[in-house]
């Protein structure tokens, strides 16, 4: 304090009192006014349940929009174009059944019989040619000179 008197004599002359006052009963009423505001604040605070919903809201929204798009596209197609859908479905079914049949036949055949079947079919193809047919094929597709060259090389 004496330090203040030396450093700031003018300041130390001024009475140290509050030049401000408050409205009547301010401190008596403050607590109840604060209580009212606190109640409002408490009501404004979200409860944990609604907080979870708020967090999940974007995900739920996204899922709902996917469902909506699906319903808007697939459902009208199914209801307004029933013949088109039926056709498509039967084509898919046919392909599936044919594939299934082939697979079941192949499963039943063992390795030896499979190769025997293959050689049999190639023999048949070769045996299909007779000499006359071969002669006519050669004469129509090759000239005499080419036939001569081929036979001379042998």
């Amino acid at each position: 304090m004496s330090e203040l008197k030396n450093d700031a004599p003018k300041l130390s002359e001024i009475k140290k009192e509050h030049p401000f006052r408050v409205p009547d009963n301010y401190f008596e009423d403050f607590s109840s006014r604060l209580h009212t505001r606190l109640e409002t604040e408490k009501q404004a605070l979200p409860n944990p349940k609604s907080r979870i919903i708020r967090l999940l809201k974007p995900a739920i929204g996204l899922a709902a929009s996917f469902i909506l798009v699906f319903l808007l596209v697939f459902w009208p197609l199914k209801s307004f174009l029933p013949s088109y859908m039926a056709k498509n479905n039967s084509a898919i079914e046919t392909t599936t059944t044919e594939e299934d049949t082939y697979l079941s036949i192949l499963e039943k055949i063992d390795e030896n019989s499979f190769f025997a079947l293959l050689s049999e079919s190639s023999d048949e193809e070769i045996n299909d040619f007779n000499d006359e047919e071969l002669m006519s094929y050669v004469s129509s597709n090759f000239s005499e000179y080419e036939i001569y060259l081929e036979t001379a090389n042998e």
Binding site: F20, F27, F30
Partner: peptide, 30 residues
Amino acid sequence: QERLYWHIRKMVLNHDDTDDILQNTFIKVW
């Protein structure tokens, strides 16, 4: 309340501003 009120009042001078800040202070404390 009184001590905090005067602490705030000396900084902002005006009573209404002080009242707002004092309420905010106690809400934050809560």
